[in-house]
Amino acid sequence: MVKLHIKKGEESHFLYETNVGVSVEDLIIQLVRLYNGRLKVDRLCQEIELLSSHGILLPPNMQGLTDEQIIDLKLKDEYADTCIPCGGHTDNPDPVGRRNGRAPNEKMKEVLHRTISEARAAISKNQVAAKVCMTEEIISDSLDKLRGAIMIVYPMNLPPYDPIRLEFEGQEDLTGSQASLAVLEESTAQLWWAGKELTRSKKLQDFIGRNEKTTIIAKLQKKGQGAPAREPVFSEDAKKEMMSYAYRRQEELKKLEADEEDSYLNAQWADPHELKRSFQGLRDIKWGSGLK
């Protein structure tokens, strides 16, 4: 099986395992689903963190209003008394006014935080270094764990407009949000390798050959962004090692040059008494034990 190290720009995302006979069309669709799935898990983790701190989302017509404004406008959160966390709540007002400030108790918070940590670890970019390949099962399992944690803490479910519930039901609307900029479309996404776009109508082996036991770095991006920057010839670790070796070599040369500057002092021609001994016939005299 060939492994693809998927990047978007310079950012590493995940490893994916496939075979060289797969069509580029099917490969791109699968990669986009995994890429968007990881984004979905991350969005849920962010919202659940806010939920654990400040409670459920207020109705859209109450968000951002002060308590005085809500009273003056005679607005009421009809889900405040039904969508309550298991075991009661603690008051923690939301500084931005999006949530009702009724946070779960510490025990229920621990359930949410532990599940968030597990989900994030499963889709983490550290999985690339650990050589763990991303699969739909990993994404699905992470979503199921997050959904289960929400049902434990909020057995009466969340309001129908809450982004967490909408994400679980596949009805999220990211229009106009920052998150929408990161999402890729299956029909228009492009896959690049070695500075060239992989044509959807061809197979992967048409570009990388038939060798299954290989790993390539491929870049996934939106259509119309042009060719992505090519990968550097040397990795950052290799560059650091080369610089370290060059520095050590430079220091060794400096040391050798310093030694050569003083080495002549031990040479015979540099001895100031050598000429005198030569005239007196005292050169190369070997002193032995027989002399008296």
Score class of each variant (00 low, 15 high):
residue 116 I to H: 00
residue 189 A to D: 05
residue 2 V to K: 00
residue 240 K to I: 08
residue 264 Y to E: 12
residue 180 S to F: 11
residue 165 R to E: 11
residue 117 S to D: 12
residue 248 R to F: 13
residue 200 R to F: 00
residue 247 Y to G: 07
residue 37 G to M: 03
residue 198 L to Y: 01
residue 206 D to P: 02
residue 100 N to Y: 00
residue 214 T to M: 14
residue 49 E to A: 09
residue 125 K to H: 10
residue 237 D to Y: 12
residue 108 M to W: 12
residue 282 L to P: 07
residue 65 L to Q: 05
residue 97 G to M: 02
residue 275 L to D: 12
residue 165 R to I: 07
residue 25 E to A: 12
residue 182 A to T: 10
residue 186 E to Y: 00
residue 161 Y to M: 03
residue 286 K to R: 15
residue 23 S to L: 04
residue 121 A to S: 13
residue 145 K to Q: 11
residue 107 K to Y: 15
residue 9 G to E: 02
residue 142 S to N: 03
residue 66 T to N: 06
residue 212 E to N: 09
residue 71 I to A: 15
residue 276 K to W: 15
residue 280 Q to V: 06
residue 80 A to H: 08
residue 88 G to S: 01
residue 225 Q to T: 10
residue 166 L to T: 04
residue 200 R to I: 03
residue 243 M to H: 12
residue 16 Y to N: 05
residue 51 L to G: 01
residue 88 G to A: 00
residue 64 G to P: 02
residue 143 L to H: 09
residue 93 P to N: 01
residue 179 A to V: 04
residue 49 E to Y: 15
residue 126 N to I: 05
residue 225 Q to E: 15
residue 27 L to T: 02
residue 30 Q to L: 08
residue 41 V to W: 03
residue 159 P to K: 07
residue 250 Q to A: 12
residue 262 D to M: 11
residue 206 D to Y: 09
residue 177 S to G: 04
residue 154 Y to W: 11
residue 286 K to Y: 06
residue 273 H to N: 14
residue 106 E to A: 07
residue 127 Q to A: 02
residue 40 K to R: 15
residue 19 N to K: 13
residue 29 I to R: 15
residue 206 D to M: 03
residue 253 L to P: 00
residue 56 I to S: 06
residue 114 R to H: 10
residue 72 D to T: 12
residue 185 E to R: 13
residue 285 I to E: 10
residue 136 E to H: 14
residue 265 L to R: 13
residue 59 P to H: 08
residue 233 V to W: 10
residue 256 L to G: 05
residue 118 E to M: 12
residue 281 G to Y: 05
residue 216 I to G: 05
residue 25 E to M: 09
residue 202 K to N: 06
residue 50 L to M: 08
residue 175 T to N: 07
residue 134 M to V: 00
residue 47 E to H: 13
residue 48 I to A: 02
residue 275 L to K: 15
residue 1 M to C: 05
residue 215 T to C: 09
residue 172 E to K: 13
residue 189 A to E: 04
residue 43 R to W: 04
residue 161 Y to R: 04
residue 81 D to R: 08
residue 2 V to I: 07
residue 60 P to H: 13
residue 283 R to H: 05
residue 25 E to K: 13
residue 97 G to R: 03
